[in-house]
Structure formats: structure tokens, C-alpha cells
């Protein structure tokens, strides 16, 4: 289906390794800023942990995401089958 177009020859901004690095750096800076921002305003919170730990949402987000992806990866060992797993059974 893929149709070649003249855009194929055009170089894209994201094709350059350097620019991808720039994005990652920007993300790191944004993360730091979001933590630093915690120091400059009065937080309206429901739970004590939100006050104790600066950037609690950030740490929590990072940890649960790593947990989510790695445990999902482990689940593959139990759950993963061939792509046509059900089709074989149903064709019987």
C-alpha cells in the first residue's frame, strides 16, 4: 500500500540524532523545573505525603511507570501466544 512520494527525499528535523537529544534534554529540564516549582507556591493537598516529599507526583509517576512497563513485560512470559492462536482453534 505504501506509496512513494517526493517527501521521501526531504530530510526531517527528527532524523538528526542531535535533535532527538535536544528533545530529551528539554524533557529533563522540564522535569527539574516542575520539581523546583513546588518550592514556590502553597500546595492545596489532601494527604500528608504530598507535603512532605517535594515533587511527590513526579517520583510516583516515574516509579509506577517503570513498574507498569516491566511487569507487563514479565506478563508476556505467561500470556503471550502466537498471533493466530485463536484462529487455529476456531478453524477446527
Amino acid at each position: 500500500m505504501a506509496e512513494k512520494q517526493n517527501s521521501d527525499k526531504k530530510s526531517h528535523w527528527l532524523d538528526k540524532e542531535n535533535n532527538v537529544k535536544k528533545i530529551i534534554w528539554a524533557l529533563c529540564i522540564a522535569c527539574s523545573l516542575s520539581i523546583i516549582a513546588d518550592l514556590f507556591y502553597h500546595k492545596h493537598t489532601h494527604y500528608a505525603a504530598e507535603d512532605w516529599i517535594p515533587g511527590m507526583y513526579g517520583w510516583y509517576g516515574f516509579i509506577v511507570c517503570v513498574f507498569l512497563v516491566l511487569s507487563a513485560k514479565l506478563l508476556r512470559k505467561i500470556l503471550m501466544r502466537k498471533e493466530d492462536y485463536y484462529e487455529e482453534a476456531e478453524d477446527d
Partner: peptide, 25 residues
């Protein structure tokens, strides 16, 4: 932002699960 950072970390370290033709039970 930190979730996005986690994604970047997992991709860059190769820990992110690879795309596999598969069916999950």
C-alpha cells in the same frame, strides 16, 4: 513529565518490551 521521562529511560536502556507479533491471553 516524569512518566515521559520513565518512557525515555526505558527506551534508551533497551528495557522497553520490543514489538512482537503476538496475541495476549
Amino acid at each position: 513529565l516524569f512518566s515521559a521521562l520513565a518512557f525515555t529511560y526505558l527506551i534508551k536502556t533497551g528495557l522497553y518490551p520490543p514489538a512482537l507479533k503476538s496475541r495476549n491471553l
